[in-house]
Design a protein around this nucleic acid. Structure first.
Length: 350
DNA sequence: CAGGCGTGGGC
DNA sequence: TGCCCAAGCCT
């Protein structure tokens, strides 16, 4: 027989080097006929959108312990799911996760669609995730293209076109390599390759199963690919967060509107965040302004948040928000920026 | 199609 | 410290 096809070479590498991940069925168990639970594949794929394996692991374990089936998740209260997602970021994923679980439970008898089109019709499932679930959970030969695959293809073929313009070219390259045998393992193999060997910086080309055919390696430019369009600079925005503690220990919090930044999450009442410096707090005699600002960086801007604290008597009527008793309030339910504010205020108010 | 949308780790 | 990056989706 002549040299092995590229997909076959990669599958052989995957059989020996597949990472042991909580949501993964190992190649050995797959060969013994075991199939992954589509619910768990879906949950892990949504959590992994733009998020590292290390960050996802504990969230995945907690979600599957709390909600072992899609029906369990569909029946969960919104606030509990948002609270459990707190800290993982991109909170639209959590809102869509619940929507999707409820559609699958109510309209599909709790069974995830098997086709790419059927999956992509669901909330929070786009081209990548639909292909990944269809390939991994149902072993269908879908072309799975994520950031790892784009990087691997860009290097394999020495594609100089910068992202995102190169997307269609890289998808075609991925399609030409996707095998009919073991497509689910193949999809995971390319992503593992990108995560462990063909990394963004310092790729380990010397031990790569595709070092033979790799054009970028031959040209010595692997680490320079894929090229990317320049990014916009982040502006800095300013605002004030108000932390109010009632005499009985309750904290004044509010649920943020369902759309936009941190949508649906718990947070401290406060001003808008603008590029102009924050206005003076109302009723300035009542507030104590903390000496240190909370600093946080979002995807598209830096934030500097002044923290103003106040103590109020039991029975105080807030203009906005709700008092949560220490028993009702879990700081872990806060998104990270709000958690930073809490950490600054807590030492003064506790 | 470009921009909004989080966070933590690595360098 | 500041910038880049990570298994994208939605509008």
């Amino acid at each position: 027989m002549r040299e092995m096809a590229r997909a076959e070479v990669l599958l052989d590498w995957y059989d020996r080097h597949a990472r042991d991940l909580p949501w993964r069925v190992s190649p050995a168990r797959r060969k013994a006929g075991e199939m992954p639970d589509p619910y768990r594949v879906w949950l892990s794929e949504v959590m992994l959108q733009q998020t590292t394996v290390a960050a996802v692991k504990s969230y995945y374990e907690r979600f599957t312990a709390l909600w072992p089936t899609v029906g369990d998740l569909a029946a969960a209260p919104d606030a509990q799911v948002m609270g459990e997602w707190a800290g993982l970021g991109y909170y639209a994923r959590a809102r869509n996760l619940l929507k999707c679980a409820r559609v699958v439970t109510k309209e599909h008898d709790g069974v995830f669609p098997t086709t790419r089109d059927g999956l992509q019709a669901l909330p929070g499932i786009g081209p990548y995730t639909a292909a990944a679930i269809s390939a991994i959970a149902y072993d269908r030969p879908e072309v799975v293209v994520d950031g790892n695959v784009e990087r691997v293809m860009a290097r394999l073929h020495a594609v100089q076109t910068p992202l995102p313009a190169a997307k269609s070219e890289l998808t075609e390259a991925a399609a030409a390599l996707t095998p009919d045998i073991r497509p689910g393992d193949y999809a995971q193999a390319v992503m593992d390759l990108g995560a462990t060997i063909c990394t963004p910086k310092n790729p380990a080309c010397g031990i790569c199963p595709w070092r033979g055919p790799c054009a970028a390696r031959a040209q010595g430019i692997a680490a320079d690919l894929p090229r990317k369009s320049p990014k916009k600079a982040k502006p800095t925005r300013h605002g004030i967060a108000y932390v109010v503690r009632r005499a009985d220990g309750a904290w004044l919090l509010e649920q943020r509107p369902d759309k936009g930044l941190l949508g649906g999450m718990l947070g401290w009442p406060g001003t808008d965040w603008n590029e102009a410096p924050a206005p003076a707090p109302p009723l300035d005699t009542d507030w104590e302004r903390l000496p240190e600002e909370a600093r946080h960086t979002f995807t598209h801007f830096h934030l500097r948040l002044e923290v103003c604290i106040a103590r109020v008597p039991t029975g105080a009527e807030p203009a906005r928000g709700t008092f949560l008793t220490p028993r009702e309030f879990r700081p872990s339910d806060l998104p990270t920026v709000m958690r930073k504010v809490f950490n600054l205020a807590q030492s003064v108010l506790s």
